[in-house]
Design a protein around this nucleic acid. Structure first.
Lengths: 212, 212
DNA sequence: CAAGAAAATGTACTGAGTCAGGAATTAATC
DNA sequence: GATTAATTCCTGACTCAGTACATTTTCTTG
């Protein structure tokens, strides 16, 4: 796992994991606002400043795992098959995530994930930052559409409709999982709701930017 | 203008305006991050604490004027005429704002408004807060739809599509006005783009929740 | 005008995030 | 294999936003 890495790189990864572990443990125990960065640093045996070297802000100690998924939608659109519309690509990517119970669409009922999820919805600062990620995801999708030759203004409109729909679906999933339902119980409804939601868009967007 | 107000209430309004004026002047001069709350307080001849008595945070010294428009879309939907769909209500409210060159849809080219707008897009903290407002606006719209009897999950999907579309249109307007074009020059294109954007939604949403 | 309510302030504090410089790791050269 | 230069990493001292509380000023009302 760590072969081919210099001592420096291995230490960096270790420190990062120590920080994430210490932070999630403390946050789960007392809540996001009741834990100071200094305490996290101490628990991870590192100076406070080092925390900010590894993470841009306190919120990223919780949200870092999400950050890698920001480009997923835009990537799915770029990589879609010939003859597939943008909408079909976004719907397909979402449904695939639901099937594999991916946390990125709110479909994991693992206790750890649920605790983090609950922390996020209960903490305004985290909700805000999570929303900034969604904004970034919108930017990347709009950019992908522009690169296909769409007018920028229309690209942003369509991107907003698609990302907005997707976010609303994720929120619906999360509400039910946070209420205690199992991922397997929610999945069928999640699929059905997604079909309805994208169906609302489909009649207007069905032929939008279909690959030649 | 101030009739019927007690001396206390008048003074409060004065202080509020002094604070807003001092803040916008300083921000315009040196940028949001290069001005401290203490300086604003001093310029407005008030203690630093008083600033936080009037505004929840530094960002609100810039964004307070926007806050009152958060409920506009939800209100337009609630107050729509019999036989009018939700989409028509949102489109109508947007187009009316464009016609009257309302700053809330990015259609004012008044120098003061432009300076504030530029400050916002250049300052991450302000962008984030502005985005939180849009989130709130989404919540209110979804709530209004639920009160009409829609399923909550579908209500949020539709609200996200509508608010997302509207935000994308506002962004398009702002980009052009910030590039130096006049509001009167942009308005016709803004109307045309809005028709196209809502048209994309219309075929799927045209009959959604039409009033009986 | 006196009593009471509301708001402004001063002091003192917590905690997030920044900066310039110092310490450790690496790789290259001899 | 030691030395050094470059890079990367870490840290102590700081700034500034925002909070808590006790005190004082300012307005209202009987």
């Amino acid at each position: 796992m760590t072969e081919g890495m210099s001592l420096r790189e291995r230490k960096k990864l270790q420190t990062r994991h120590r920080l994430l572990a210490a932070a999630t443990a403390l946050f789960a125990e007392r809540g996001f606002d009741k834990v100071s960065v200094a305490e996290i640093a101490e628990a991870a045996e590192v100076s406070k400043m080092t925390v900010f070297n590894y993470f841009a802000g306190k919120e990223d100690l919780v949200l870092a795992p999400m950050e890698e998924h920001i480009g997923d939608v835009a990537r799915a659109v770029r990589d879609r098959a010939s003859g597939e519309s943008v909408l079909a690509a976004v719907r397909g990517q979402f449904l695939a995530c639901v099937e594999r119970r991916d946390p990125s669409v709110g479909m994991s009922d693992a206790p750890v994930v649920l605790r983090v999820r609950r922390l996020i919805v209960e903490t305004p600062a985290l909700l805000t930052r999570a929303h900034a990620f969604s904004m970034r995801s919108f930017d990347l999708l709009a950019e992908a559409l522009v690169e296909e030759g769409e007018e920028p203004a229309i690209a942003r409109v369509v991107a907003a409709q698609l990302i907005g729909t997707r976010n609303a679906l994720i929120q619906a999933n999360q509400l039910r999982l946070l209420a205690g339902e199992s991922a397997d119980a929610v999945a069928p409804d999640a699929v059905a709701l997604a079909e309805r939601a994208f169906g609302l868009l489909a009649d207007g967007l069905a032929d939008f930017a279909t690959r030649p």
